[in-house]
Design a protein around this nucleic acid. Structure first.
Lengths: 189, 189
DNA sequence: GCCGCTAGTCAACGCCCGGTGACTTAATGG
DNA sequence: CCATTAAGTCACCGGGCGTTGACTAGCGGC
């Protein structure tokens, strides 16, 4: 007989963190509208009501997730000279793991819900684009940062839209190379 | 006293066309989920039930819209040598008119709804990317077409995510120039 | 060993959506 | 001028969503 698995030790802090984490995962894989409170709750193994209770509302939860993942934009770790290829590889060949592009992905998925987009607009620029532009540096840093971010998100969109690319492996390889070069050119100035 | 404006002559064909047109407009500006049958109906000035009746279901309507706008992808008119700048200008400076990028925009907005994305996946590749790749031509046409489309959609996403860019006019101008050059390089080979 | 407090659950509410069957109204042909 | 038929409307359903107030169960202090 099933004993409801592990009944999860009563620990508000840990539960809260687990919810936040599950939400991050969900929101980076599905759109704001497609993610339901009940889905998140099921992932964690709690009741949906608890999610509302802890975070106030779905919008607040989304904002919290955005906050939690914006510190340390994951684009920027690793050597600068390998940036282009590294990111291109992640976007083209690791659609599941998605390396650590969660921040960008969540923003990307918010296109669709008016509410989610407002939240992203409120925090996205200073929390994400700002630090990224600083890392990019040099002349016209903000412009180049936007350009790079756009290229990355665009490729992610493009991939999803066709369900993987409709390309054979060699073509993917060449796509990776071209995209890598473009990205590198952008951040190199 | 108001006489309910013009009571719209009873003409099924015209009404059908009007609905299709209004849907195109809506779907290119808002996401699949955010567009309601009632919204579209209101735009046209008919009852929401009629929209369902004429097109079967929301998904069918969406598919019809996609069909109707995919013939003649609007990216490709105008001289080839001006492609990069022309498109960059449209994306960056004409967010409302959006030139005639409706096809791409609708696809872009479908990211979010699982249903909408399935429909796009079903028709997008051959109806949109195929013709575009033919137009691009040359070596690795499909790869370069995907790259160009990704760049365009990415910039559109990026713009929406921050609500316009957070850039001053000169920066926008430089963004346009850079993006134009990148696009042109892609389609030139 | 009981009590109080809090983490967590349960049932239900109100809302809005897409879709449908029964109705009303306008054009048309005899 | 009326009957017929198609065009359009209306009321309503069933379902899923986010959220809430009332409840239950487990842990810490005395």
């Amino acid at each position: 007989m099933f004993c409801h698995a592990a009944p999860r030790p009563r620990n508000a802090e840990a539960t809260r963190a687990a919810i936040l984490n599950a939400s991050l995962e969900r929101f980076s894989r599905e759109s704001y509208d497609d993610v339901g409170m009940r889905d998140i709750a099921k992932d964690v193994g709690v009741d949906a009501a608890l999610v509302s209770r802890y975070f106030g509302s779905k919008e607040d939860l989304f904002a919290s997730v955005l906050d939690s993942c914006s510190n340390g934009s994951e684009l920027m770790d690793g050597p600068r000279s390998g940036f282009g290829l590294r990111v291109a590889h992640a976007v083209i060949f690791e659609p599941k793991k998605e390396g650590k592009l969660k921040g960008l992905l969540i923003m990307l998925r918010s296109v669709g819900s008016t509410k989610a987009m407002e939240i992203v607009q409120r925090t996205g620029t200073e929390r994400f684009f700002g630090p990224f532009a600083d890392w990019v540096g040099g002349e016209d840093a903000m412009v180049r940062a936007r350009l790079a971010a756009a290229t990355i998100m665009g490729m992610a969109v493009s991939r999803e839209i066709t369900g993987g690319f409709g390309l054979n492996p060699e073509e993917c390889k060449r796509l990776e190379a071209r995209m890598g070069r473009i990205l590198q050119d952008i951040i190199d100035g």
